[in-house]
Write a protein that binds this DNA or RNA. Sequence first.
DNA 1: GTAACTGCAAAATATTTGCATCCTT
DNA 2: AAGGATGCAAATATTTTGCAGTTAC
Lengths: 138, 138
Amino acid sequence: MTNDIKEILKKNQLSVTASREKILHLFLEQPGALAHGDIEKKAGEKFDRVTVYRTLQTFVEKGIIHTIPTADNSIRYALCKDDCASGHHHDHHVHFVCSSCKNTFCLDDVVTPNIKLPAGYSQQHIEVVVEGVCKNCR
Amino acid sequence: MTNDIKEILKKNQLSVTASREKILHLFLEQPGALAHGDIEKKAGEKFDRVTVYRTLQTFVEKGIIHTIPTADNSIRYALCKDDCASGHHHDHHVHFVCSSCKNTFCLDDVVTPNIKLPAGYSQQHIEVVVEGVCKNCR
DNA sequence: GTAACTGCAAAATATTTGCATCCTT
DNA sequence: AAGGATGCAAATATTTTGCAGTTAC
């Protein structure tokens, strides 16, 4: 498991450092998505705010995690599936925000639908976020 | 036209003030969505940052405008259709972000699709944002 | 006249940048 | 040893809050 973490970092040409291992571990050990603030809390004063910013940014650039837009101005991050390589990230699944427990999940098995756009519009990417109650909260 | 603006405000039990008229006017005169920053720019030093925050918040509460989540942490606001009343806002259309001109539009004619969720999940709301090139930019 | 709205000041938060030091390779 | 990563300090930017003065009704 710890090896997995090192592997992911190496595969993306990143040096293996304590902060990166710890942040990546947080993502692996929990099913949902994490906002910047969550990471600082869960890590328990361990590392600098700035390191978290920089690490998240690096991970997004490398395609290790991806962002999930939300309506409340708090960007959330979630792990990408293995087949997301740097540059061409394909994020074809639906995101789910639980209005009860406030967690955000990737519904990896639910693919985004095809949308018929009006004439003249071309589609490059689609993002679907469903809000509701998750299976743990009902 | 100016009457429309006053009407909208009155219909929502808001006093008609210069700031509210001006901000509402900005939304009416342009097809896309506006972020907080856009409003400050377009208004040209006219009113206080704080007033913009408070006005936007009020409008969202009353259902005059709604928020559109984006991946880059900049919340955008757009006018709601007439049938959005306070409390039960129905926002059943797709949003479109142009990667060229950076504008955000409401595709009012494109309704959000039905998503089949995994067992145990219930849906309260759905948000669909498509990124691509709009008809003006291609 | 009263309640609601605005603008200013200031506080609280959040994010970015520079640089010296430390760690990974 | 060299390059990259971290942590601290500080600069910026963003959002919130309190309060006094102004405006709408």
